[in-house]
């Protein structure tokens, strides 16, 4: 579950999960949804994805940076993310998608980078919520 946030020059995302791990997965899906139309992606190929960080905040930023690397440098669009290892400053799992086809995957915006601006990771009674802003 996620939503897209906007304010002046910003675009951001807010994602939820029963666990922090699930919130991370949903945040990556939200990033994908900002870059490309999710429904256009056939999740037919699994790609490995992993990141590390000094704390939860940098772990989240670095995790999303990995997703962005696939989207912007490797030209692979991703629809689903599953984290298989989460802890000790490391997150690792798989993402499903396919190579980007400009005719099939209508581009939306180019995300330049993932920022720490107003970054939030919160535990709530019903689970976890994360908020991240992106530079576009």
């Amino acid at each position: 579950m996620f939503e897209i946030l906007e304010h002046t020059a910003d675009i951001g995302l807010r994602a939820w999960g029963a666990t922090l791990q699930e919130a991370f997965e949903n945040a990556a899906t939200a990033l994908s949804a900002i870059v490309v139309e999710l429904d256009d992606i056939d999740p037919r190929i699994a790609y490995p994805i992993a990141a590390s960080g000094d704390d939860d905040q940098s772990l989240l930023v670095n995790w999303l940076d990995e997703a962005l690397y696939y989207l912007d440098a490797r030209r692979i669009v991703l629809r689903r993310f599953r984290i298989e290892h989460f802890g000790d400053g490391r997150v690792a799992g798989q993402a499903w998608g396919e190579p980007r086809d400009p005719l099939k995957h209508r581009p939306k915006v180019i995300v330049k980078g993932v920022t720490y601006h107003q970054l939030k990771i919160e535990q709530r009674p019903d689970g976890w919520q994360v908020q991240v802003f992106l530079d576009i």
Partner: peptide, 26 residues
């Protein structure tokens, strides 16, 4: 964009070593 991302990532931990405090991680 990637140069900025790479160095922001490195500077967080480096800042602690240099004893620098700033109000916004960005």
């Amino acid at each position: 964009h990637q140069v900025c991302t790479d160095y922001l990532g490195q500077m967080g931990p480096a800042m602690k070593r240099y004893g620098i405090w700033i109000p916004d991680r960005q």
